[in-house]
Simulated scan of single mutants.
Amino acid sequence: MAEVPEFELGRTYDRDEIVENWGGSRYSGIAHSRKTPNVMIFSDPPKGRTYGYIDHLALYDGEGPLVRYTGEGRVDDQKMTPGNAAILNHHEDGRSLRLFEAVGYVGKSAARLHRYLGEYQVDLPTTHIISEAPDENGKLRKVIVFQLRPVGPTAEPSVDSMPVVPGISYTDFHSVTEVEPVEVITSKLVELENNAASAIVRKAVEETEVRRREAELVDRFRAYLEGEGHEVKRCQIPIPGLNAVLLSDVFDVADKILYEAKGQADRNSIRLAIGQLFDYQRHIDPQPAALAILLPEAPNEDLKSLIASVGIELVFEEDGQFVGWPVSAASMRTNASTDSNR
């Protein structure tokens, strides 16, 4: 049997070469191979938007690089078809996700060339969300948007393929109750029993559990704020010159408070949250009234002092309540006033 070649990061391939070496379909956007343990997924953001495929190949959030890839299905609500299931279940199936972006044409033909961006895996615990986009007939429908994280090195997507984001936008959270039909898997958080495949995810189990705790904490806090009559969003922040977008955690629209959540109250997590909040704040105009860190439990006194020393508020969960909420914006206003007098 001939040896299967390795994918070359950043190299451009045509579909014939991909099929010959790794299998899969010549035409499908999601090519589940019977020849090798791979699922090849192909993205063409400029062309895809015509059909309601809104792919984002260079997002960043608190966990690092993130790709959002729209599943298959050009008309009506998308369902968990074999192609979409191949992405969702690639861990259980022992297959690698290989991401390609369209970068040109083969000669003067209509056949596309595809640049290999690297190996990815579905994110845990939020493997996918449900969004809305028009289909090829202009009818608004529900689409499955997979959330993917890189496995090892990746190649940067081309500038031409990036979405144009003129300024800060505020995106909604998606909840299970909003989604129909039932055939589409729609959970904001995958149930514990559905995460049995996490043992083969190429990340430490502890990291997966911390991220699960963070996602669940965000959901509880969001429900709490909405119960208080507050509108809750996330900030989508374009980075000038980099064709990349940062995604924040919680933005309380009513009080204009930007929160960064962490799944544990240790020093490294809090240091990271501080850096992320100041990074986000630089690009948001008008700036938030205050910055706050959201934790699942109280940190030690030294870490409380660290958070207070940089003018950031602290909210943590204790006995089903959120201590430190509502947040006072006094320290933020004091800091802003001090900065303006320099």
Rank of each mutant, 00 (worst) to 15 (best):
M1W: 05
M1P: 04
A2C: 04
F7M: 08
E8L: 14
L9C: 11
L9Q: 09
G10Q: 07
Y13F: 15
R15L: 08
E17C: 02
I18V: 15
I18G: 01
V19H: 11
E20C: 00
N21V: 00
G24W: 07
I30S: 04
A31H: 07
H32T: 08
K35M: 14
N38S: 04
R49W: 05
R49G: 00
G52T: 09
H56N: 15
H56L: 12
L57V: 05
L66I: 10
T70F: 02
V75M: 02
V75T: 15
D77M: 03
K79Q: 13
K79D: 09
N84P: 07
L88F: 14
H90L: 05
H90T: 03
E92G: 09
R95K: 15
L97C: 09
R98W: 04
F100H: 07
G104E: 03
G104M: 01
Y105R: 15
L113Q: 15
H114D: 07
R115H: 07
Y116R: 03
G118P: 07
Q121S: 13
V122T: 15
V122R: 09
D123W: 01
P125F: 12
I129P: 00
E132T: 15
A133I: 03
P134V: 03
E136S: 08
I144W: 00
V151W: 03
V151D: 05
G152A: 03
A155D: 02
D160F: 06
S161P: 00
M162G: 07
T171R: 14
S175R: 14
S175K: 11
S175A: 12
T177C: 00
E178W: 07
P181Y: 06
E183R: 13
T186L: 01
S187A: 14
K188W: 09
A196Q: 13
S198D: 12
A199M: 06
K203W: 02
T208I: 15
T208S: 15
R211V: 11
R212K: 10
E214I: 01
E214W: 08
A215R: 14
R222H: 05
Y224Q: 02
G229N: 02
H230L: 03
R234Y: 00
C235S: 06
Q236T: 05
I237R: 06
L242M: 11
V245L: 15
S248G: 03
V250W: 01
I257C: 09
I257E: 05
I257Q: 04
L258M: 11
G263T: 10
A273S: 10
A273K: 08
G275L: 06
D279F: 11
Y280T: 10
Y280R: 06
Q287S: 13
A289R: 11
A290V: 04
A292G: 04
L294H: 09
E301S: 14
S309P: 06
V315H: 02
D319E: 13
F322W: 05
W325K: 06
A330K: 13
S331F: 08
S331Q: 15
M332Q: 14
T334Y: 06
N335V: 13
S337V: 06
D339C: 01
D339M: 09
R342W: 08
